[in-house]
Design a protein around this nucleic acid. Structure first.
Lengths: 203, 203
DNA sequence: TCTTTTTCATAGTGATCGATATGTAACTAT
DNA sequence: ATAGTTACATATCGATCACTATGAAAAAGA
């Protein structure tokens, strides 16, 4: 059975002396709070409890560490993709995204706002590729929602003249804006009312 | 006539050898594009055509230069406040803000997006005060719009059960989100359709 | 045990950050 | 003309940036 062998790869050499996943979680929280470029290696080593060489051995460099933190942020039992896919209608998909955003942006143990929406909004030319990568993720979510709307229109669940692109873009804009509102101090209840308000654009 | 005297203050000492307003404009464009912290003094001196000591004598320090650039961004013949104040209704005020945002975020000679919405979304702890200052500006605009809605409700122009805070917050969220959409490559026409979509939340 | 492989801690790399010391140039006031 | 004031150009400052060279420590395979 190869599955059992894969569970214990039997690596040679000195093993990692720290919890890689816990360290990655701390890095994610720092990037979430201060963004990609404003988070220094010094900040990371302090929060992760790991020395610089260990970070570079375990994660490559700062860019790869950030992208892995982003991947961790996007992973989990509930993702934007799963919310859209499992919703019974495009309308419920949008509502699911908005509701989970209001909750996720005001978590008790996480920084306010959204990592995807805040960590690379503005950065230097040196980080343009990282910025582009996150923009790609955002556009994919928007595109996925738009496709859900298009299918819903084709299925007769929404009026034929529905502007799928505009509805999807509006939903994404509200979500990104809710992230800024949360960073500016808005509480969960306020974000929920914004989410409810945003749903009124649906036919 | 003191007004004439104010036009020529008759300063002593060597005069500035560069156009202060043009240099400030260049600084504003850089901050607009890359944000507060990601814009370096080296970038600024190059774009402004001015040496570091001249910047510090003319503007104080980097923080003061940025805040002056923000003030310049917020000034002008048309401001968020003037749009709200001069609108005939709260609904038209929101539409004016959304429309001018769609146009302003996709200008030909300016970076995409909004300086207020993007330049200090994420920054280090050292820039927390600058971040707070811009958050205050955003909240003031939102509060101003909310008051317009409240007055409109009191005047009978909107239903009595209107949630002024939610409507104002939703409008602000869409505007901030439109800034990110613009930075991600959205064209003016798309932002206009998002703006039109956002107006459907109004009763 | 001894070699090989990987990670560890220490210390420091060149580069760049925001900001300035220094001396000269350019202006007004007397 | 001289003094006083301000801005100029040159050449940095110490601090911090992302990153790494070096050698010891800890594991597996022989």
């Amino acid at each position: 059975m190869k599955t059992l062998e894969k569970a214990s790869p039997a690596k040679i050499g000195r093993p990692l002396s720290f919890d890689r996943d816990a360290a990655l979680h701390q890095a994610m929280l720092l990037f979430w709070q201060h963004g990609y470029e404003a988070t220094s290696l010094s900040d990371l080593t302090t929060a992760m409890g790991v020395t610089p060489p260990s970070i570079y051995t375990a994660f490559g460099d700062k860019k790869k560490l950030f992208l892995e933190a982003v991947q961790r942020y996007c992973s989990g039992p509930v993702t934007a993709k799963s919310i859209i896919d499992e919703a019974d209608s495009a309308r419920e998909a949008a509502w699911g995204l908005l509701k989970s955003s209001a909750i996720g942006f005001t978590g008790r143990d996480t920084p306010p706002g959204c990592l995807l929406a805040s960590s690379t909004i503005s950065c230097s030319a040196a980080a343009a590729d990282v910025q582009a990568e996150l923009a790609s993720i955002r556009r994919k979510i928007e595109s996925h929602l738009k496709n859900k709307i298009v299918r819903n229109v084709a299925g007769g669940g929404l009026p034929r003249e529905t502007d799928a692109a505009a509805l999807a873009a509006h939903t994404m804009a509200v979500i990104q804006g809710m992230s800024t509102l949360a960073r500016d101090g808005a509480k969960r209840e306020k974000l929920m009312r914004v989410a409810q308000t945003a749903m009124r654009v649906w036919p």
